[in-house]
């Protein structure tokens, strides 16, 4: 167990629900679930979830910390918001799923190499650099996320699309040299660092 995870587990003991309420985006909503399952049935990627959202909620209440945080399921969220608008208890399910994924990622117990986890990381890194996402760099990063050899393969596989997009002026090869960015990229970086610091403090992360 890594440090952050160890500390969290030690601090909350068996009360995983409390941990989720304190530290996960919209986690205080979890307890309001009444197990109707409409979220599970509404998700476009539902068939690929090992644990449906409502089941994850039950698992949280039952203290199944490791199973939840190491689950692949919430990384399947496409942010389509079907679950949110249908939930009879108005749980912000999309956000809770995002929050759980983020928390698992932060504690570094989310599944290693989970593709969405990697893509999300790369996306964030891309935006933090300049304040705006550079689609080309981001795409290349995505292709090379599994290593150089795999990246070449991915890139070759997708090169048809890439070429077509370039032809359609929707992928600019010059972006690799710099591309769009915010003037105040520095301020943005500082601002994000501050936000993280405040949030960590509020959530009781000591490190």
């Amino acid at each position: 167990m890594n440090d952050l995870n160890q500390q969290a587990a030690a601090h909350y003991g068996k009360n995983f629900l409390k941990e989720v309420e304190d530290r996960v985006e919209d986690g205080e909503w979890v307890k309001m679930c009444m197990q109707c399952g409409v979220c599970a049935g509404s998700c476009p990627l539902g068939p690929h979830w090992e644990h449906s959202p409502q089941k994850i909620f039950r698992m949280i209440m039952a203290g199944k910390r490791d199973e939840v945080l190491s689950s692949d399921s919430m990384w399947m969220c496409t942010s389509c918001y079907n679950c949110i608008v249908r939930c009879p208890r108005k749980l912000p399910i999309t956000h809770i799923m995002h929050g759980l994924a983020h928390y698992a990622h932060k504690l570094n117990i989310a599944p290693k190499g989970q593709p969405t986890r990697e893509v999300a990381r790369l996306f964030w890194n891309s935006l933090v650099q300049t304040g705006r996402v550079n689609e080309l760099k981001f795409s290349l990063a995505v292709y090379f996320k599994d290593g150089f050899v795999r990246g070449i393969k991915n890139a070759l596989a997708m090169q048809g699309i890439g070429l077509k997009l370039m032809k359609a002026k929707r992928l600019n090869p010059m972006e690799i040299l710099g591309g769009h960015k915010c003037k105040d990229a520095g301020g943005i970086k500082k601002m994000l660092a501050k936000a993280k610091e405040i949030e960590d403090r509020r959530q009781g992360f000591s490190s």
């Binding site: 990622h105 986890r117 996306f123 890194n125 935006l127 705006r132 993280k196 405040i198």
Partner: peptide, 15 residues
Amino acid sequence: NCCSASIGYGEGGLL
């Protein structure tokens, strides 16, 4: 600047 879209959550916290 970028809104962080619906994928930024993985790395970026809520705040």
